[in-house]
Design a protein around this nucleic acid. Sequence first.
RNA 1: GCCCCCGUAGCUCAGUGGAUAGAGCAUCCCCCUCCUAAGGGGAGGGUCACACGUUCGAUUCGUGUCGGGGGCACCA
Length: 590
Amino acid sequence: MTHPQDPKSHLIALFQHAAGQFAKAEHLIIDLERPKQASHGDFACNVAMQLAKALKRNPREVAQAIVASLPASEWVEKTEIAGPGFINVFLKASAWQNVALQALAAGEQFGRGTLGQGKKIQIEFVSANPTGPLHVGHGRGAAFGASLANVLTHAGYQVQREYYVNDAGRQMDILALSTWLRYLALGNQFVPFPANAYQGDYVGAMADSIYALHGERYLRPAAEVSADAPDAAGDPEGHLDALIANAKRLLGADYAYVHGHALEEQLGDGRNDLTEFGVIFDTWFSEKTLHESGLIDKAVKQLQQHDHIYEQNGALWFRSTAFGDEKDRVVLRENGIYTYFAADIAYHLNKFERGFDRVIDVWGADHHGYIARVKGALTAAGADADRLTVALVQFAVLYRNGVKASMSTRSGQYVTLRDLRAEVGNDAARFFYVLRKSDQHLDFDLDLAKSQSNDNPVYYIQYAHARICSVLSAWGGVEADLADVDTSRLQHPQELTLLRRLAEFPETVDAAARDLAPHSIAYYLKDLAAELHGLYATCQFLVDDEELKLARLSLIAATRLVLQVGLGLLGVSAPERMSREEATTNEAGA
RNA sequence: GCCCCCGUAGCUCAGUGGAUAGAGCAUCCCCCUCCUAAGGGGAGGGUCACACGUUCGAUUCGUGUCGGGGGCACCA
């Protein structure tokens, strides 16, 4: 046997060897469970039951044979055959005692998984239209995407974080028009402001800044702005489109300035907001460049060559029904403008061409009907659609005093991400956002997130970290000395429980990466914090027995490390000091 | 009509093809002379929505039913 690294992989190797008498290694899947009950040992193996049927033998008999040929191991205390044919393995304390020192030796690299194996993966998230402030729905996508990207990185992937900027569509034109109309009003050119234009105060603020910078340069007569526009009440969308067309004609080359100003302002605002939230992107991919570089033409031609495009009613349609979609989809409209879908096909083909082994899109759940057609188009164009995974993020609903805090985009009264962060803080916001599986509805309890109490799981975990810092600080020794202590003194059940939990961290990271489920990191940290608090209440760390003291300190130093790394994956801070007094003061001061 | 998500303790939710299904909150009872009580220990509380299948074994997988939420544009 090779030198044991961690107990689980060690045991898997032992079982693989022992079960080899019944099946070839490549057909053996050794599954080691951590039993819920201590009386079932450290690990339970069900391989005997799996094999029993093919062998037509009694599972307990098979288990006997496997146990008999298990190679000797200094870590194994005893094995038992239990129930229908489980092999329960009880480990000696020495199997776990290494864990703390291994963690300290690895430092921030502890738990660095092997799942990714350096593969290139791209995760695209948020990608909100830059037409206004980010709201709480975007916040969930941001927190989920950023945490997932961290988890994937820790699991050994080479990760690129990308934001797709919708800077080419009609929505941006509407924002530019809205801004311009507000600007015109500043110059006493009053055009009735359409109800379906952007209403928010930020639009007026942008108009103010344009007026302050450039005075009346972009003023045009109000009468000409609404010339020949259909009635706003009868055809609101046609009315808006006519105003946009007029704006482009009247402003000429200056239209690009207004459009660009609005885009830069809103994109910059979103970027600042996300940066403050700890959400950083490596690349900002512009939709406009897809149009300008001809990639959309190219993508549609590619589909045409494979005979997946037909013309009907003056538009070009992609035959997505041939790929499992429920109806065919337009790519080029009757008016000669590509649909968003066409741009998305080109965008995804481009992602694949950039050499990612895997691509993850984080979308709002309202886009779920979109998956079939995008994947269909990729397949139709000859790409491997299985390399694309779409993670859907359900909406978050805010609750205040047990009542739904409603959110309405139309009235401009929606809750912004910035408001939420100001109200509950970045840490609580990041943590609560990823506390649920992404594809499940999230009830965000504002009062709980704000509460500076033990009800709040964020504080519970952070407090475990602060407590450890406090002990190490009271000790006053050199922490580097803890990397080389005699850990055989760690015998207490609470100590072993904590050691076992630390050993689980690497596989927790890998599982979270595999399932695209950063929430499992949050639950792991809650368990880890609980066990630290349990130990804290049971054992004194700063005892007179020097060896025992150092052993215990190395254990909690390792725990602190895992808390830091784990909280870091979720984008939550790990404060060194916390006190209720400060919290109360803060609350009073706020 | 079609598609997606959900149904687990009073509430909010984890969880797993395995052996007696967990946590927090809420309720009740204990624990600071001691490294931070934002902590710890204990008690009560369950037909894992229902039915049928697959399986040695189903809360977990499949089908159906019921109930809740969301989505189905030549919008982006």
